[in-house]
Design a protein around this nucleic acid. Structure first.
Lengths: 320, 320
DNA sequence: ACATATATGTCAACCGGTTAACATATATTA
DNA sequence: TAATATATGTTAACCGGTTGACATATATGT
């Protein structure tokens, strides 16, 4: 009761191995009745060609490895959804890797993907310093992360987003605006949001301070700054937790404190439509990443490394 | 500049193919210096064993196909995250398939997974009637969907969940409770939520009506039922859209209408913590599904088909 | 009638590892 | 010293398709 193979099909159809292979790959001349016989045999045997054997021979798997921290997040969940869709449309399959933000896991995944002979990798998980990224000549595109000099980055216009968010809070009359962001050690374009915030505040001669989203950052921020009246959170989840903390303290949003988030993923918009946020073009980012990667796969090192930056948009909600 | 292969390693290390293979697989006797030499050669060449070749020989890929509608959803996003984690912990990789609810895509994916020789499939995408599910002897476990008689289903206690939700609304004093659910044609245990709702209402001699979540169900529900004072939504996103519609009409939640959702995924809880909902044990479901599948893979048809049902929990928010 | 297109078969090499069988050589141990 | 454990090599078959070279036979066109 083993899996049927090509030779079983050939035998049942009463033709040669080569003929079956010709039918499968539409190569050479094949007669109509023969093609039919072969298809019937495949049907009857419930035969599926072994793609592993094929991959081995043609040295190509049509698999793309996708490494991100998690699918359990509105932004990544949506990004990965679109990545998978665009891959599928181009005939590629996706091997999913959730690094959970752990560098050791990421390194292990990277090695696994090489062993599995994936045709390319789309990564948005960690930072440079993982030498595997450097050493490998594997086609890689990163989303929202600097991985290595020769790896192109697809991201949205983070600086412009930070600027938009900060200006928006200023326009709404905020005087004491704070920013929350990840550790700077994570080398991601998201740091540009912070730069934009700080520079915009400086330009307006306003005091500024960035909190790092660790531990009880929300509690500390409110405790340390009684006059706080505006918060630019570097993502929508953080914005949500800031708003929760504010409500817990009886601080009215947007009355006393205005809060703007970042990302504007579909699910966030559905579950928290009132949130003012900077929306990233997630689907477009996925599209660019996949198309660029496939170009790299097909053209090899001829393709010049060029980063892609896409525009963001302010979505006015009721929290500012 | 081709990928280094085993023979390159052997040559550089000055040993035979067999010796390298022995080092890689820890088989037979190997001297310490030889092992070291081989490892150094692998390091120098940046060599990764070709898992495709290995898979072909051992007839096992250690890949599990995962088919769900999308990762762009709090419930599936979290479920898939945990599925991937448990797979990884057991040495399996995940090939991600987003069917987008389309039956043709699902069928295509199913065929692709067979061609790719995956060791098993975890599916929660569609309904029975896809004959591939029937014909294939491939180990399959489904989550929250009836696929075929011989395919075990892992789900939460949907009937109990529906009962809890309905009773909760009744206890909160609702008299005109409506339910929103998917089309019944989708053969999913989620239909039990509807059954529980309808039977519980019947038991309390209350009128009941279930709306199907197509088009403007929310608008219709409010238009047709001025006396509505309670809604049991079959998932949290629907609950969110019901609440939005209520607010649009100036209907206070929970003052005039109480709304309870279903799922209680992490992201929903973060973005909409006020929502009262029935929480499914998503991580536990993923764990059971993966472990059951791996058991099926290892033991083959000896393993009896047995469905797994896990308990749900009412989470009291501020919308009821 | 002859050139060419169409249809199918045979054979063997190949993709990159794995593994069993067997040979050989040194090291250890009873 | 003989028996055994350790260490490494050689050879070849195998996993399941793919492909090129070559042979052969019928069909079609001019």
């Amino acid at each position: 009761m083993n899996k049927p193979k090509l030779s079983d099909v050939a035998e049942l159809a009463g033709v040669s191995l080569t003929t079956v292979s010709r039918v499968l790959n539409n190569r050479g001349y094949i007669g109509d009745k023969t093609r039919k016989k072969v298809h019937e045999a495949m049907e009857e045997l419930n035969y599926y060609p072994n793609e592993i054997a094929r991959s081995l021979f043609i040295s190509k798997t049509y698999i793309i490895g996708v490494i991100f921290p998690t699918t359990n997040n509105p932004f990544y969940g949506q990004l990965i959804y679109h990545l998978e869709n665009f891959c599928e449309a181009l005939g590629y399959k996706v091997l999913l890797c959730n690094s959970g933000g752990r560098e050791d896991k990421e390194r292990a995944y990277l090695e696994m993907l090489q062993r599995h002979q994936v045709d390319g990798i789309i990564a948005g998980a960690h930072n440079r310093g993982i030498d595997t990224y450097h050493r490998s000549r594997m086609p890689i595109v990163s989303v929202d992360r600097f991985l290595a000099d020769h790896i192109p980055v697809v991201s949205s216009d983070n600086y412009r987003g930070g600027e938009l968010a900060t200006q928006h809070l200023l326009e709404r009359g905020c005087k004491h605006i704070f920013h929350i962001n990840g550790r700077r050690s994570l080398e991601t374009p998201a740091n540009l949001r912070r730069d934009a915030y700080e520079e915009t505040m400086k330009k307006h001669k306003m005091p500024y301070k960035t909190y790092v989203n660790v531990d009880d950052y929300s509690v500390r921020m409110f405790d340390e700054n009684p006059k706080i009246d505006g918060v630019f959170a570097s993502d929508d989840l953080i914005a949500g937790s800031v708003i929760r903390e504010a409500m817990k303290r009886g601080i009215n949003v947007p009355g006393n404190v205005k809060v703007i988030g970042y990302d504007g993923a579909d699910m966030t918009r559905m579950l928290f439509p009132d949130l003012t946020t900077i929306q990233q073009p997630i689907e477009a980012m996925a599209k660019e990443a996949v198309h660029l990667l496939v170009k790299l796969i097909n053209e090899g090192e001829k393709t010049a490394v060029e980063n892609i930056t896409l525009p963001v948009e302010l979505i006015q909600g009721k929290t500012t």
